[in-house]
Amino acid sequence: MAGKLLDYNQLVETALRGAVREALSRVAEFGLPGNHHFYITFRTDQAGVEIPPYLHERYPEEMTIVLQHQYWGLEPGPDAFEVTLSFNKVPERLVIPYAAITAFADPSVQFGLQFRVAPNAENRPPAPVADVGDEAQAPPAAAPAEEGERKTGDVVALDAFRKKKS
């Protein structure tokens, strides 16, 4: 390390990713208290990210998930967390490394973090090839919530609300 500067920004990001891991660990053990819920945005092209091919096709670079009422099997590990979410009433297991997270927010307490994650084309899995006109290969559209059903676990695109870098 002699001759190299300390990258304090990287040290802070590492510590804050630890805070995300700890928050997920507490939720895995005790559940989400009160109105707490999480928006987690992550790079889908990073090493270690595991999502179904149709979701990767729909979100080849970045995706946001919501942990609120309908999630199962939240398992935070030392380097990644796993969770099952429902997409069009189909349960899907996701594996998300903390290093792939670009944003973490808990709107119930107006808390949010943003992280630097460079796009990683080398780690991007090949996009699935769909037959032209084969609707079964297309990613499913969000199903409308039924009367009285709370709709959660959907992917929410927040790009329109982000400030563009000049």
Rank of each mutant, 00 (worst) to 15 (best):
A130M: 06
S166G: 08
E147N: 07
L6R: 14
E82P: 03
R17D: 08
L55D: 07
A142E: 15
E149N: 06
E135N: 13
A28R: 05
A80R: 12
K4W: 10
V90Y: 01
A80N: 05
E122M: 06
E122C: 01
E147Q: 11
D106G: 06
A2V: 12
D134A: 09
M1Q: 09
E122F: 06
L24R: 06
Q46S: 13
F104W: 01
F81W: 12
P97H: 02
L11E: 14
Y8C: 02
P126A: 14
W72P: 00
T152L: 06
P97E: 00
G31S: 02
I96A: 04
L16V: 01
N9C: 01
N120F: 01
T41Y: 00
L32V: 10
P78W: 02
P126W: 05
W72A: 13
W72T: 11
N123E: 15
Y71D: 02
P78E: 14
G148S: 08
G77K: 07
L74K: 06
K151L: 15
E57V: 05
V109D: 05
H69I: 06
P78Y: 05
L32C: 11
D131I: 10
L32Q: 10
G18P: 01
P53R: 07
L16S: 03
Y54L: 14
R116V: 14
G148A: 10
V49P: 09
G77D: 10
K164T: 11
Q110A: 15
E13T: 07
P126Y: 02
K89N: 12
P33Y: 10
N120S: 15
R116S: 09
K4F: 14
G112E: 08
Y8R: 12
R58L: 13
S108K: 06
A105Q: 13
E122D: 15
D134I: 05
R93Y: 03
K4G: 03
A28P: 02
V49H: 03
R43H: 09
E147P: 08
P91D: 06
A118P: 03
R58S: 12
L74M: 01
Y39V: 00
A47P: 01
A145R: 08
R58A: 14
P140W: 11
P140F: 13
P33H: 11
K89T: 05
P139T: 03
N9V: 06
R26M: 11
W72V: 05
T102R: 09
E82G: 14
A105N: 04
Y98V: 07
R17T: 05
A143C: 04
L11M: 15
I40G: 00
T41N: 01
E75C: 08
L85G: 07
F38W: 08
M63W: 09
K164W: 07
G48E: 10
G73D: 11
E57W: 13
A28N: 01
V155W: 09
V117I: 06
V90D: 03
M1C: 09
A19K: 12
H36I: 00
F87H: 13
F81P: 11
T102S: 12
D131M: 09
P78R: 13
S166M: 07
P60G: 10
L32T: 10
R93G: 00
A47W: 02
F111H: 05
V90H: 04
P139I: 08
N120C: 11
F42E: 03
Q68R: 15
D131W: 09
L5T: 11
E61G: 04
G34Y: 08
G18F: 01
Q68V: 00
R58T: 04
D7C: 04
G34V: 02
